[in-house]
Amino acid sequence: MDVRAIVEQLNGLDEDNLDMRLYFTKKKSSGKYQTYSPTISLGLQNDLKDIVTKALEGVQGVEQRPFSPIGSIDGCVETYMANEVDSFEDIIQSMNSDFVNREGIPKKEVGKLTFYCLRIGTPDGDALFFRRVTKFNKLKGGIVGQFFANDFEKLDGTLLGIDSNVDIVIYGGEMLILNHISLERIFSIKDQYYQKAAQTLDLVNRANRITNFEQFREDCLSDGRVTRALTKLLNEEDKMHQVFENFENVIQVIDIFDLKIELSEGNSKLIYEDKTQLLDLTRLMRDSFYVTYINNRDGCDEGV
């Protein structure tokens, strides 16, 4: 994503050409999204534009890397295509004029809101800025209040905060992810991880290299760390096939690293026994074990 170009366009907007909408969204128990779009004053619009512009200015020179389900790299931001996120279209649909609620947010709904989105129109298209909601709860045994002229009035606790941070920027169909965990929290992609992990396991099953496979599958899909790794592995399908095709090397790795994995008679399959083997089996499938060139040192990619 060309961050500098977006910053230039934002800086070129003023009161005469500033087109902005603010949306607050929650995910309903049905899995659908409910979005509210309150009116915002021109002064607040300028404040919000300054917030997102400064957030983008802070990452102008930062290295960008493709999003990885298993974690981000310090000092980098991640990119991802918005259409790769299953819930993206549902969220955008909830913001469309036919569905968005413009009549105000009921107090009982404020605590259920999970994120907000600021949409700013630019000459080259809309820029979307997502951030998880900051909520202010009532003080235990105390009162939150504010001065109005000479009066001190109690606030009712249904307060939402908009801070100076941005979690995700979407522009031209591309995501810039400034906060790795927010992609999962805002777009609820745990279900997506589960589905992709299940697809990966179908491929593993076809290879027919793991015994007690149904239990292995069930245990994998109940472990969030493993489902993330299997999601990434789906994009590395060739690597996984090569691992199972070079099964003699798999046996050698088990011996070198003293992995607690037994082999069936004929050394043709890995015997799955319990959850303690999940990470080692996943690392085997991802070809995460290695030997360094210089010191001939055995190692393992701990990304799983």
Rank of each mutant, 00 (worst) to 15 (best):
V7F: 02
L10Q: 03
L10A: 08
E15R: 14
T25H: 01
Q34L: 11
Q34E: 11
Y36E: 08
I40D: 01
L42Q: 08
G43H: 02
N46M: 15
K49T: 12
I51F: 06
K54T: 08
A55S: 10
E63V: 08
P66S: 04
S68G: 04
P69D: 03
D74S: 12
C76S: 13
D86V: 12
F88T: 05
I92L: 09
M95T: 07
N96P: 01
S97A: 06
D98W: 00
P106E: 03
V110T: 10
L113T: 04
T114P: 00
Y116P: 05
T122G: 06
D124I: 14
D126Q: 10
T134P: 03
V144S: 15
V144E: 13
V144D: 15
L155G: 04
S164H: 03
S164C: 11
N165V: 14
G172R: 03
I177H: 07
I181E: 13
I181C: 12
I181N: 11
L183R: 05
F187W: 07
Q195E: 09
Q195P: 00
L201Y: 07
N205Y: 05
R206Q: 15
N208P: 11
I210D: 04
E214K: 05
C220G: 01
D223R: 03
G224K: 00
V226Y: 02
A229Q: 04
L230D: 01
N235S: 13
E237S: 08
E237Y: 06
V243L: 09
F244W: 10
F244R: 06
N249M: 13
I251R: 14
I251M: 10
D255I: 08
F257K: 13
D258N: 14
I261K: 10
E262T: 13
N267I: 03
K269N: 09
L270P: 11
T276W: 02
L279G: 10
R286M: 07
R297G: 02
R297M: 11
D301W: 05
D301R: 15
